[in-house]
Amino acid sequence: MEKNNLIIFNQNKKAAEKNIIIGGIGLAIGIVVFALSYMNSVVPTLVIGVIIAVVGLVFFIKGSSSFSSLNKRFKKDVLSKMFKELIPDIEYRPDYGLNEGTVYETDFLKRADRFHSEDYLEGKIEDVEFVSSDVKLEERHVQHTKNGTRTYYVTYFLGRVFRFAFNKEFIGSLQVLESDRPKSRGYKRVKLESIDFNKKFKTYATEDITAFYILTPDIMEAIFNLEKRHPGRIGLSFHGEHLYVTINNNKDTFEIKLFREIDDSMIREFEKDLLVIKDFIMTLKLNNNLFKKK
């Protein structure tokens, strides 16, 4: 990545952060002045407090909005190019995400009351097609209090959802989950030979033989290693011609961070997050000749 480009982004980022800090401080001072004046019934300082708070709010909104547009520009100008260099057959659409239908095809993620997805990636690695995006799933909670009802949302999934082409023919469906349970009926718990694997993952299949066919000792070991390399709760669902993988790690990927300089370490982190896709394809041997469509 060009150094000059990075310097400009960091300068703009610092300006946005400056506005956010000034705005935050102004807002805090304004509120304190307003509260003290209100308690002591001093009208002139009360007005000054309101003015300071409003000016603070304006700075804060301005800073947040320029940070947000900077983030979008960074994804479009920098990340898109970087991803193309790392994986030539890739398309990155930061504002777009996997649709709900694709996410729920995993058949173990609960339907959300509020659904959000972004950072859509689509492409091919070693002839294996994939799509992925960041997904946030929230559940609505209603609390009844003496002052009325309060509605709030609780996030139960924040992480990434991947869909890979899986061309090995098998009967029924299979799920390997660290948490959660299959949503459809017809799944039975399957115990495999590996005690460690059974301890770490729960395996559900509509047919016992499918579990043993797909989860060969090599693949079980590969899943184990993937789980170690990628923190968070992992879920795999083999269904039809696809393998769905979810990582619930409470992380929003490909986002620049407030008050942290865009440096090589951050760029490497983005690279690592992108190459998770390649890691899954290679480790699970999805590029194996046996798996390829005839």
Binding site: K191, E193, D208, I209, F212, T216
Partner: peptide, 13 residues
């Protein structure tokens, strides 16, 4: 061969 290995492992399990 993979099917056979799966059948063998399921039987043994």
């Amino acid at each position: 061969e993979e099917h056979l290995q799966a059948a063998r492992r399921l039987y043994n399990a």
